[in-house]
Simulated scan of single mutants.
Amino acid sequence: MSASGQQRQMTASEVRARKGGTPLVCLTAYTTPVARLVDAECDIVLVGDSVGMVLHGLPSTLGVTMEMMVLHGQAVARGLSRALMVIDMPFGSYEEGPEQAFRNAARLMAETGAGAVKLEGGIAMADTIRFLTARSIPVMAHVGLTPQAINTLGGYKVQGRGEDAHRVLADARAVADAGAFAVVLEKVPAALADRITAEVPVPTIGIGASAGCDGQVLVVDDMLGLFTDFKPKFVRRYAELGHAAGAAIAAYAEEVRARRFPGPGHVFGEAP
Rank of each mutant, 00 (worst) to 15 (best):
H142W: 03
A182L: 08
A178Y: 13
G160L: 12
A165Q: 13
H142S: 11
A165Y: 12
V183R: 05
H166W: 06
G154T: 05
M140K: 05
H166Q: 13
A141E: 02
M140Y: 09
S136W: 11
F181H: 09
R161D: 06
I150H: 04
A178H: 13
G154I: 04
V175M: 09
A141K: 08
L153M: 15
G160C: 08
G179Y: 07
L153Y: 07
I150Q: 05
V139N: 12
A141L: 02
D177P: 00
G154V: 03
A182H: 01
I137K: 12
V175G: 08
A172Q: 03
P138E: 13
D164M: 10
G179D: 08
A172G: 02
G179R: 13
V175S: 08
A149V: 00
H142F: 04
L153R: 04
I150M: 12
L169T: 03
G154Y: 04
V168Q: 09
G162L: 07
P138C: 06
D177W: 02
N151H: 15
G160T: 08
R173K: 15
D171E: 08
V139Q: 12
P147K: 08
R161P: 01
R161K: 14
P138Q: 10
H142R: 12
D171Y: 03
E163A: 15
D177A: 15
K157M: 01
S136T: 09
I150V: 15
G144Y: 11
G179A: 11
V175W: 11
G155H: 07
L145C: 05
Y156T: 01
E163W: 02
Q159P: 02
A170P: 01
G179L: 11
I150G: 00
R173M: 12
Y156E: 03
A178M: 14
V168A: 08
G154E: 08
E163I: 06
V183T: 15
A182S: 14
A149S: 15
F181A: 02
T146I: 10
A182C: 13
V175Y: 11
A172D: 01
V175C: 06
A170Y: 06
K157E: 04
G154C: 07
R161N: 10
A178V: 14
P138A: 11
G155Y: 05
A178W: 14
A165K: 13
I150N: 03
M140I: 04
Y156V: 03
R173A: 04
Y156F: 14
A176H: 03
M140Q: 14
N151P: 00
H142L: 07
G154H: 11
M140C: 13
L169H: 14
V143D: 12
Q159V: 02
N151F: 02
Q148T: 06
L153G: 04
V183F: 00
L169G: 00
L145I: 10
A176W: 07
R173E: 05
T152L: 07
H166N: 03
G179S: 11
G179E: 09
A170I: 02
L169D: 03
A172F: 00
A182E: 00
P147W: 10
P147M: 05
V168N: 07
P138D: 11
A178Q: 14
T146N: 11
V183N: 01
G179I: 09
A165S: 15
T152S: 11
V139K: 12
